[in-house]
Design a protein around this nucleic acid. Structure first.
Lengths: 155, 155
DNA sequence: CAATCTGGTCCTAAAATAGAACTAGAAGTT
DNA sequence: AACTTCTAGTTCTATTTTAGGACCAGATTG
């Protein structure tokens, strides 16, 4: 038996992204981090995750540059886990998942959380796929293609 | 030991979405479906996934309304797995993962695939978070809040 | 300075995964 | 029609991952 399959070597950014954050818990930890959770115990009780798994996930996400540790903001000797710039880059992934979930997984009256603009309290707009010039696009207007590097490997 | 944790009951659309498509393989199967893959064997060889797991995933995704089966388009007696409307709704999740992967997981010269607009051959624009009136927003301009249903439970 | 809290590690049992072997029906070949 | 190959699975076993609890060291609180 070999190890769990790795997708890193695929030339597809989707596969490589999932190789990093595509497991059962990572995106939930990241979601909580966006919501201001920073401490081991907060993640643990908030998610209901086993401590051993959480410890492994936090370590992996830190090694992979998505989280970093910092001295606890409350002045104690413990540490905070906070998102790096790279980790914050995942915000639109979370938003896209949220919008899909809202659209397809709830009945109209089911209570649920929403993503609000803090300044006005209004919900944020839906994400949209657009061309470079701003024209709206549908998935059927697109296709995936292997591209060559922009610069040559050698002189 | 109880079963694997379910996130369905959380009032968070992100958690509920991940409960449906948050495992190791589902989003890759969906990505391939967006790229035109329809047949069991295509998914299997393309992803390098074990057949048993693929069979389970395809069944689950079908039961959950993300894929549906249809008579094979090549006229054979086999069947195609195609995305439903609900499944196609996941396109922006895939795009968001792709853009994050492109930004953070590749060196400039690493070859990789890209998402192109078919009509012009240009790359699609980056996804952006915006307010309802079109103002660009940053993640730090937002917060998550539990909302009440728009309609009352009973007259 | 004793009790408790925090953030872990370690252990075991159950569940999921990987991979190979096997199979039934469809398709193609002669 | 008979034989072979292809497709789409199912089933089996070994390995890995997960869930949950026991345990533990250092920090904090009373």
């Amino acid at each position: 038996m070999v190890k769990r399959v790795s997708l890193w070597d695929a030339g597809c950014p989707v596969a490589r992204a999932l190789d990093v954050i595509g497991d059962w818990w990572s995106l939930l930890i990241i979601r909580d981090a966006f919501d201001g959770v920073t401490r081991f115990g907060e993640f643990q009780t908030g998610l209901g995750i086993a401590k051993g798994i959480l410890a492994t996930r936090l370590r992996d996400l830190t090694v992979r540059g998505i989280l970093q540790t910092a001295p606890a903001s409350d002045g104690s000797a413990y540490k905070d886990y906070v998102l790096t710039e790279k980790g914050r880059g995942l915000f639109l992934v979370i938003v896209a998942l949220r919008q899909w979930g809202e659209d397809h997984l709830y009945l109209p009256d089911d209570p649920r959380s929403a993503l609000l603009e803090t300044e006005t309290g209004a919900r944020v707009a839906r994400l949209e796929l657009r061309a470079q010039d701003g024209r709206p696009l549908n998935w059927s207007d697109t296709h995936v293609k292997k591209i060559q590097p922009l610069t040559k490997p050698r002189g």
